[in-house]
């Protein structure tokens, strides 16, 4: 079980080549319960990716603290679906997934995942021979395959066509309900956020701050009903005009 406390006092990008230093994040505090699915919703350039990189431990140049509480066990396993697929072009689809796994990969489990994502036909192909949508699905498979304690997702379904995105979302929810883990999901698509999240956090840019947060009151069952999602979205936008400006 993985609980996360994000406390970023300040994140500044030094100005390169005479440019002004850019204050990206200031006084941002977010906590996620164990097993919670949280969506960060905000416009492009509001520091969402910066935030995920800090949580993932890739960016250590900031003031503040990220605490990942993991019930006494050592460091939690983190799955990160980047904005671009970031596959190794010189390794096949299957190799890309199995490389991310700890020693002695379970080939069976990977096969099941490939099947679920419709990638069985291409498992021996190199990523450059696949469409962008397929590469994205491989990146998803890689993140699911390691069975992460914490899953970070940075607009993972962008550029998937609508049916593929729907399938991927359903798979994500299935995987998550089967084996509860903490998810931090970044998107600028409010509809997607409502379908997926337990809790929504709305972020405003420069410096990044939480302007509003709320639990999504819809039951999981109700969320496959597009009408219900749409009604909730309209209500949300009319109740909180600030969010409308944001998106």
């Amino acid at each position: 079980m993985t609980e996360i406390h994000i406390d970023i006092e300040e994140k500044v990008y030094p100005g390169a080549g005479g440019a002004q230093p850019h204050l990206a994040i200031k006084d941002l505090r977010i906590s996620l319960h164990s097993g919670e699915f949280v969506c960060l919703v905000g416009p492009s350039g509001c520091g969402k990716t910066t935030l995920l990189n800090i949580v993932a431990g890739l960016d250590k140049d900031f003031h503040g603290e990220i605490r990942l509480l993991h019930g006494g066990k050592p460091k939690p396993l983190v799955g990160y679906v980047f904005q671009e697929p970031r596959l190794l072009p010189w390794r096949t689809v299957r190799e890309n997934i199995e490389l991310a796994l700890p020693a002695a990969p379970d080939h069976e489990a990977v096969t099941l995942l490939l099947e679920a994502l419709g990638l069985c036909q291409v498992e021996e192909k190199y990523p450059e021979r696949l469409s962008l949508g397929m590469r994205r699905r491989v990146a998803l498979a890689r993140a699911f395959a390691i069975q992460p304690d914490l899953l970070l997702m940075d607009e993972p379904f962008v550029s998937l066509d609508a049916p593929a995105a729907r399938r991927a979302r359903r798979l994500l929810i299935d995987v998550w309900r089967e084996r509860p883990h903490t998810v931090l999901f970044v998107t600028h698509d409010l509809r997607e956020a409502i379908v997926l999240a337990d809790r929504l956090l709305f972020l405003a840019p420069s410096p990044t701050s939480v302007i509003h947060q709320m639990k999504v009151p819809l039951t999981r069952k109700l969320r496959s009903d597009e009408q219900a999602v749409e009604t909730f979205r309209h209500k949300l936008l009319s109740d909180y005009p600030a969010i409308r400006h944001l998106l």
Binding site: G57, L58, L77, F82, R86, L88, R91, L99, A100, I146
Partner: peptide, 21 residues
């Protein structure tokens, strides 16, 4: 840099990173 970040977040370790990335 992106692939190195990927390798780091998936905990490839030094040997795997050197050999595969």
């Amino acid at each position: 840099r992106n692939l190195l970040d990927m390798a780091q977040s998936y905990r490839f370790g030094q040997w795997k990173t050197l050999r595969h990335v």
